[in-house]
């Protein structure tokens, strides 16, 4: 099965080279989407120079959800059987990609979601973020109808089949895409499961990652999304 990774990147010039090289052994191809970065992300990604890599560029910044969707479309056009979403900041461990795609390869699932809350404790995650994610889980259940059994409401490490991609047509440009994907995965008749993943937070990734106020922004984006075709 052809496994193609999708890595959205915005101003990641200092980290993306290493992140790409770490992923390549586990993927057949990797689509990097430079989301209108102001730094040399695009050049650094291209400079890795491996034939497995395809580097695309958004002319202007459209945010993470939009870049992921562009990358996923590209992966489908490149003949992906399985699409893997992975962050460019190195907080996901590429060595866990086989674990993520295994239930799909063995025919047990159409979509597999990485979870930070299934025993593998995240390294360096602040307590406030844990509480927010817990609140996010409740919000997802009550407002979006996502089963309570989904333990991680905001994970960006996931895999799904090309067939499932047609049902996971997410449209949120910004951070709300994670909740939207969960909703589509769990309510479209797809077979899904969560697998435990390790996430490593550093001062750098925390500064760029979700902030406390983002929880309210995500709720607002989801509300607007419900009224937007």
């Amino acid at each position: 099965m052809r496994v193609i990774g999708v890595m959205p990147a915005y101003n990641e010039a200092t980290r993306i080279g290493q992140a790409i090289r770490a992923c390549l052994p586990y993927l057949d191809r990797l689509v990097v989407v430079d989301d209108g970065s102001k730094d040399a992300t695009y050049a650094v990604a291209q400079a890795v120079g491996d034939p497995k890599i395809v580097v695309l560029r958004h002319r202007i910044n459209r945010d993470q959800g939009a870049a992921l969707r562009t990358g996923s479309e590209a992966a489908l056009r490149l003949g992906a059987d399985i699409i893997v979403h992975i962050d460019a900041d190195g907080q996901h461990d590429p060595a866990e990609i086989p674990k993520l795609v295994e239930p799909i390869i063995t025919g047990k699932a159409d979509a597999v979601l990485g979870s930070r809350f299934m025993g593998a404790e995240p390294q360096g995650m602040p307590l406030i973020r844990k509480w927010l994610l817990l609140a996010g889980r409740t919000f997802n259940t009550l407002a979006l109808g996502i089963p309570r059994s989904v333990t991680d409401p905001q994970s960006g490490f996931r895999a799904y089949t090309a067939h499932a991609a047609s049902k996971i047509a997410f449209t949120q440009n910004r951070k709300a895409h994670a909740s939207e994907i969960l909703r589509l995965v769990t309510r479209s008749g797809l077979r899904w499961q969560e697998v435990p993943i390790h996430v490593r937070y550093t001062a750098d990734t925390l500064r760029k990652g979700n902030q406390t106020s983002d929880a309210f922004k995500i709720a607002w984006q989801l509300l607007l999304g419900a009224f937007t075709e």
């Binding site: 209108g36 695309l56 958004h58 459209r62 056009r77 937007t228 075709e229």
Partner: peptide, 25 residues
């Protein structure tokens, strides 16, 4: 809501251009 719709249309345009880079492959 109309602002959000415009944002999505803008994303579509940007995406189409980005996917154009895939080209022949």
């Amino acid at each position: 809501i109309s602002h959000e719709k415009l944002e999505r249309k803008l994303t579509d345009v940007v995406r189409r251009e980005a996917l154009g880079e895939l080209g022949a492959e």
